[in-house]
Amino acid sequence: MPLLPKIAPAPLEPTLGRAAMVVLLLAVLCVLPFVLSDYRTFQLTQAVIYAVVLLGLNILTGYNGQISLGHGAFFAIGAYTAAILMDRWGVPYWATLPAAGAVCFCFGFAFGLPALRLQGHYLALATFALAVATPQILKYRKLEDFTGGVQGIVIMKPDAPAGLPLSQDQWLYLFTLAVAALLFLAAWNLLRGRVGRALVALRDHPLAAESMGINGSLYKTTAFGVSALYTGVGGALGAIAVQFVAPDSFLPFLSISFLVGITVGGLATVSGALWGALFIVYLPNWADEISKSAPWAIYGAILLVLVYLMPGGVAWMLPRAWALVLRRIRSRGGAGPGA
């Protein structure tokens, strides 16, 4: 039994309505930091960062069917790459992003090679092992010179470029948003075309896909690499936003919450990453407001409810709910005497 469902990927054709929606969303997102407090802006920055990560994980898990319980590791590698470059070599923050992406692509690609031989639960174990081992490796004595060991690395928050009347938080948010928009555009381009179809074909009918001439190993390892790249860039942005990295920031639960994020958001969708990111950032806080005694119990209960109400995730449910509403309205209109 495959670990993943055969979900047809969400439609990605550039229709007029969809384009309008994206433009509207972007416009709202651009205005938000000027309406909200710095704290809220910072929170949104984190949500945008997680959206990038979830998009990356969705490419691998949603589209290509390779489950990963270890993306926290790539997030950590991206974050540490950025932190070390800034801290030791004074590299400007924006220049650390391509570096983090490249490093993570290599790690992801390399990890994707043995992953080719592992399927389903075995891949889940392998990736989870990666997540579990990450803090231990970051703490390792021989790497301490670079990683700062258990104490981690503190980095500086970037200022807005001279002349722009923006606070640090506003600037960081807009910068993050721009990077995210770019990455979303790239992913959309990738997934709606030949590559996207190949990934899905490999997920659902691996043998048939290969016999049609799709190079399975190459696609799968590359999917791992690209997915890690997204996650790594997210990690670098996260490090810059939080100004701190330490082994304890990257415990296994982080990887699990990424997986929760894409499932709640919607597997094999692009927009699901946004919903999932909102979930990751805001749900723990709500849970905390409801109960100090057992916030995780609240978190788990809400998770259960969401999974029951929307088994495919928010991104799959919303269009259906919307269609349902439209039908209701139409049928009500149609029942009128004039019709």
């Binding site: 704290y39 910072f42 939080v242 304890d248 920031s249 806080n285």
Partner: peptide
């Protein structure tokens, strides 16, 4: 006002900023 950070430094930053700024 005591807020949960889940022992995750990223959330500590978020919650601390909420305490200080909000």
């Amino acid at each position: 006002i005591s807020l949960d950070d889940g022992y995750n430094p990223a959330r500590t930053v978020e919650q601390t900023r909420r305490l200080v700024e909000q």
